Simulated scan of single mutants.
Amino acid sequence: MILLTSNAQNIFWLGRYLNRIQYLCSQFPFHCNETALDYTHAFCLPAFDASSLNELVLDPEQPASFHQQFQNAKNNIHDLRGVISQKSFAELNQLLQQAERNAGFICDVCAECHDVLEAEEDEFLFLFFSLGQKMEQLDRQIRLKQTSEQTLHDLDQLSQHLDRCGVVSVTEAWQDLKRQPDSQHYYHFSDHIDSLFELVRL
């Protein structure tokens, strides 16, 4: 299988969007104003308490809403036709149709999409999907000052896998981030990940 730059990037961002939606699903609806404000400040959202944040994530016009994030994931899935197996693509399409008929299914559908993609056997597809998930997790954990030890461990394994596969070396930037997991070092490492999509021809 040939995994082109655009394919790798779509898989990576699909991992990020599905992880983003699943985390938001785990928090919604927000009840505590303090928790809601932490979230809005971390992601620079125009909300001022739990109620206004709940309204924002349900507003289909808002970029941070369930609807908009799901559309981003949907676009990435459609761009992967011919990359993932026909069976998986058909299953994903069916799930997308369910969510389009009833927006209340978005959380369940995203979890099922995640399961379908994890079942794919292609090594590089799983690698970039997992990388997207873990990068999204670490971004959120740094922003919200959450525990990140397990995510750092998982990213360490993925970083080593990238090196072993000869995709590209991210060792130096990764070691910097591992020593000091803050926003500055995260974005530096993220720039190195972006460079993958200029080089990938697997």
Rank of each mutant, 00 (worst) to 15 (best):
Cys32Lys: 12
Asn33Tyr: 07
Glu34Thr: 15
Ala36Pro: 02
Asp38Arg: 14
Asp38Trp: 04
Thr40Lys: 04
His41Leu: 15
Ala42Cys: 07
Phe43Arg: 05
Cys44Arg: 13
Cys44Gly: 10
Leu45Thr: 06
Leu45Gln: 06
Pro46Arg: 11
Ala47Asp: 02
Ala47Glu: 03
Phe48Ala: 10
Phe48Thr: 12
Ala50Met: 05
Ala50Gln: 04
Ser51Gln: 15
Ser52Glu: 01
Glu55Phe: 13
Val57Ile: 15
Val57Pro: 04
Val57Asn: 07
Asp59Ser: 11
Pro60Asp: 08
Pro60Leu: 09
Glu61Asn: 14
Gln62Ser: 12
Gln62His: 14
Pro63Gly: 10
Ala64Gly: 09
Ala64Lys: 07
Ala64Arg: 04
Ala64Met: 12
Ser65Asn: 06
His67Gln: 13
Gln68His: 12
Gln68Pro: 02
Phe70Ile: 02
Gln71Ser: 11
Gln71Cys: 11
Asn72Ser: 15
Ala73Leu: 04
Lys74Met: 11
Asn75Phe: 11
Asn76Trp: 03
His78Val: 09
His78Tyr: 13
Leu80Arg: 05
Leu80Phe: 03
Arg81Leu: 12
Arg81Lys: 15
Val83Pro: 01
Ile84Asp: 00
Ile84Tyr: 00
Ser85Met: 03
Gln86Tyr: 12
Gln86Arg: 12
Ser88Tyr: 02
Ser88Leu: 05
Ser88Asp: 06
Phe89Lys: 05
Phe89Tyr: 15
Ala90Leu: 10
Ala90Arg: 07
Ala90Thr: 11
Ala90Pro: 02
Glu91Leu: 11
Gln94Pro: 04
Gln98Leu: 09
Glu100Val: 10
Glu100Gln: 15
Ala103Ile: 14
Ala103Phe: 07
Gly104Cys: 05
Phe105Gly: 00
Ile106Lys: 01
Cys107Val: 06
Cys107Pro: 08
Cys107Gly: 08
Asp108Arg: 05
Asp108Gln: 14
Val109Gly: 00
Val109Phe: 01
Ala111Ile: 13
Ala111Ser: 14
Cys113Arg: 00
Asp115Thr: 14
Val116Gln: 03
Val116Trp: 00
Val116Thr: 09
Leu117Arg: 00
Glu118Asn: 12
Glu118His: 09
Ala119His: 08
Glu120Asp: 04
Glu120Ile: 06
Glu120Pro: 01
Asp122Leu: 06
Asp122Arg: 06
Glu123Tyr: 08
Phe124Asn: 08
Phe124Asp: 10
Phe124Tyr: 12
Leu125His: 00
Leu125Gln: 01
Leu125Trp: 01
Phe126Gln: 12
Leu127Phe: 11
Phe129Met: 03
Gly132Asp: 04
Gln133Ile: 11
Lys134Cys: 09
Met135Lys: 00
Gln137Phe: 10
Asp139Leu: 12
Asp139Trp: 07
Arg140Cys: 06
Arg140Val: 04
Ile142Gly: 03
Ile142Asn: 00
Arg143Thr: 05
Leu144His: 05
Leu144Pro: 07
Leu144Tyr: 05
Thr147Ala: 12
Ser148Gln: 12
